[in-house]
Each structure stands twice: as C-alpha cells, then as structure tokens.
C-alpha cells in the first residue's frame, strides 16, 4: 500500500487526484462503536485463535468449522460466502425435511445439480452457521431472562412472541435447507432471520428497566 501514482496527463484527472488527496484520512464514528464490538466479542465468544484463557464454545475441534461459523457472525450476511467457499468432503447427513417445507422450498432450489460431495459439506455449513448463531443467541437470551422481571409485561409479550415466531421460521428454513443445502436464497433468508433474532435480543437487552 504505497503511493505509486504518477501525475496524470489529463488536467481533469490531476484535479480529481488532488481532491482525493485532500480527503481526510481519519473520520471519527458518529457514535462510539466499542460497546457493541465488545458485546459481540463477549456474546459470541469469538476468541483470538491461540488465546487459551477464554473457553471456545464450539462443539467441533475442526478449525475450518470454527472459522466458517465465526465468519458468519463476523461478516453478517456472508453465510452464502461460507457456503460457496467450502468445497470439502462429505459430512454426516441430517434428517429429512418435513413434507410441508418441501413445496415452499421448491422455488428456492439451487440452480443446476449439486455435486454429491458438496451436498454433504454444504449441509454441514448450514449446521455450523446455525450453531454459531444459536450460541450467540443463547448468551443474549440468558441476559434477557435475568432482566425479564423488570421489563414491562407488554414489552415481554412482544419480545417473547417475536422470539417464538423467529424460532418457528428458523426451524422451517433449516428443514428446507436440509433438502437443498446449496440454495443461496434459502441460506440468505435463514441468515436474515438469525440476524433479526440477534438484533431483537440485543435491543431487548438495551431497554431501560423498571426500578424494582
């Protein structure tokens, strides 16, 4: 990353380059992002590899699996990227989807035939992605349970009803993904619902509490 640019012949380009050079190199964030970053690190137990003092939550010892799962938490909507980047051998298969999911899933079929080896690997990525989100959600749900009695009943109702709705949707999307784990659209939708769940839990945990 060095300044290798040569002065352009076109004066208009020169003017553009000078204007670009004048842009500030540092811009302070509008709001302090650190509390959210710290919360995400703590909630997701995303630990630096090689830092043994903090326990890792993941069930598997396979590094790729941890990395794939962590990447989903880190990148947000990148579940598909993880899916596409994975190209390893078969992993254990999972139970078949309920019949109801199959018809809805038809429109989300991945184009073209999925190579058999990729199919199992893709399924495993779905499991890993879900595990990572579930782990992060579980931590936030624990915090919510501790705060629950000091939130207003109507707020508790809204949050709990929403969590039930979200969990049903996650179940349905996962069942469909078991049938077609390479479906990019389905993976995106599952990712979207999981992000909604994390966001809802975070927002609920930031609500002001009643004083007793």
């Amino acid at each position: 990353m060095t300044d290798h640019r040569t002065p352009p012949d076109d004066p208009r380009l020169g003017a553009l380059q000078r204007a670009a050079d004048d842009l500030p190199r540092e811009v302070a964030p509008a709001a302090d992002a650190w509390p959210a970053i710290r919360a995400r690190i703590e909630a997701a137990r995303v630990v630096p590899m090689g830092a043994p003092t903090v326990p890792v939550r993941h069930h598997s010892s396979n590094r790729w699996r941890v990395a794939a799962a962590a990447a989903v938490l880190v990148v947000g909507s990148s579940a598909v990227t993880v899916l596409v980047m994975r190209g390893e051998a078969d992993a254990p298969s999972v139970a078949a989807a309920p019949a109801g999911a199959a018809s809805a899933a038809a429109s989300f079929s991945s184009p073209g035939a999925t190579p058999p080896g990729h199919f199992g690997a893709a399924r495993q990525v779905v499991v890993d992605v879900s595990d990572s989100y579930e782990a992060a959600s579980a931590d936030l749900e624990r915090v919510l349970r501790a705060r629950r009695s000091r939130l207003s009943p109507s707020t508790v109702r809204a949050v709990e009803e929403s969590l039930r709705t979200i969990d049903r949707a996650i179940g349905e999307a996962r069942a469909a993904l078991e049938q077609d784990p390479a479906s990019r659209d389905l993976m995106d939708l599952l990712d979207s619902v999981y992000r909604q769940k994390l966001d809802l839990l975070r927002r609920a945990n930031e609500l002001p509490l009643r004083s007793s």
């Binding site: 709001a31 992002a33 970053i37 690190i41 630990v47 630096p48 880190v74």
Partner: peptide, 26 residues
Amino acid sequence: NALCIRLTAGHGAEELLQDVFVRIWE
C-alpha cells in the same frame, strides 16, 4: 472508519466497522 464509510458509501458503515474490529480481534 473513514475506509468503512467510503467503501459502503456510508450505508451500513457502522455495521461494517463492528464487523471489522471483531474480525481484527479474531
């Protein structure tokens, strides 16, 4: 943050900033 704002055109820059620092931590 300056980089995040410019790459995202300011939209989603806050989320990207968080993502980046969580990734840096990792």
